[in-house]
């Protein structure tokens, strides 16, 4: 591995994640609108929104402190660090040594910690409500997430996402493991919970009492809101990327050749598009769950993940 690829690849990863994230959101919104027989906004609408917001001044609550102003940066940068650690186009991640999937999970927790704090910072009851619910859902999702990650790591022999991808790329039958199947199912539920999609949370809601993630960011405006929106769409893309490159790694380049990267980029876009489409189908065919039914769903995810790892231990 040469020094150039060590420098080029992380920058490429960053550009893909940062650049494509709003597009995924736009794509989901567009298809969803189509499902509802609407024309829907342009697929590039999230970009227009972000540009507009970034050019605006911000209105900040008097009661808010520096925590409130720091939160967007923390949330945004923590996601950017994760973008460096996730295999996007190539199974080789030069910054692998920085950390593994456990670091990634806890970096998500960093952003969430600050978002929940800022939700309390403005002294508005809606913010606190959103923050409290978000913390509940993420706590319930955590064990399932950790166990499914454990399953994948044990099957691949590493907790580093880059190594996991290359391990699965090398051996085709390794992925044909029922345990990984269970882990995949559990991870899907967890990702829906983490990114606040239906049936856990409704990202399009405008009713304060039903808001979870949106409730937390209710008070942000201008540049701050742009950063948080961007961060949350990047979170969705990163989680989908992890899912795609762990369970469907085929086509990811293993080195740094131009043609290989082009092919893997094309395949990557197709795979992400497929999962985004699945999300659309899910969101269009289900209603939001009652808040206290959510632990049941996440409990199911937990059982699946326990089952995944136990069957890996017992059967192999």
């Amino acid at each position: 591995m040469s020094l150039t690829s060590n420098i080029v690849l992380p920058i490429l990863q960053l550009i893909v994640i940062v650049g494509l994230a709003p597009l995924v959101k736009g794509f989901i919104n567009k298809i969803e609108a189509r499902f509802q027989c609407r024309r829907g906004p342009s697929i590039f609408q999230p970009y227009y929104n972000l540009i507009k917001l970034l050019r605006k001044d911000a209105v900040v609550s008097e009661t808010a402190s520096w925590i409130f102003r720091a939160t967007p940066y923390v949330a945004f940068v923590s996601i950017l660090i994760i973008a460096l650690l996730v295999p996007v186009l190539s199974s080789c991640v030069p910054l692998n040594f920085t950390g593994d999937v456990i670091l990634i999970i806890y970096l998500f927790a960093l952003g969430r910690f600050f978002l929940a704090l800022s939700s309390l910072d403005t002294a508005s009851a809606f913010g606190g409500m959103g923050g409290s619910r978000e913390m509940m859902i993420s706590s319930m999702a955590e064990p399932a997430m950790m166990l499914s990650v454990f399953t994948v790591s044990l099957a691949a022999g590493s907790t580093n996402l880059g190594n996991i991808t290359s391990a699965f790329l090398d051996s085709s039958t390794l992925l044909l493991n029922p345990s990984l199947f269970l882990a995949f199912a559990a991870l899907c539920i967890v990702i829906i919970a983490e990114t606040g999609r239906i049936p856990i949370d409704n990202p399009h809601t405008h009713l304060e009492l039903t808001m979870i993630h949106e409730g937390m960011v209710l008070e942000f405006s201008g540049r701050y809101l742009a950063l948080i929106e961007w961060a949350s769409s990047m979170k969705l893309l990163i989680l989908l990327t992890i899912l795609v490159n762990t369970f469907l790694p085929w086509g990811a380049a293993s080195g740094l050749t131009f043609s290989g990267l082009i092919i893997s980029f094309a395949l990557y876009v197709v795979k992400i598009g497929f999962f985004a489409f699945l999300i659309v189908i899910l969101e269009s065919s289900f209603a939001k769950l009652r808040l206290f039914r959510i632990p049941n769903l996440l409990g199911t995810a937990f059982i699946l993940s326990v089952l995944a790892i136990i069957s890996l231990y017992v059967v192999g």
Binding site: T173, L176, P178, L307, S311, V315
Partner: peptide, 14 residues
């Protein structure tokens, strides 16, 4: 054989 037994396993888990 490996693939088919794995398939059956996956179906079982489903």
């Amino acid at each position: 054989v490996i693939v088919s037994s794995r398939t059956i396993d996956i179906l079982a888990v489903l």
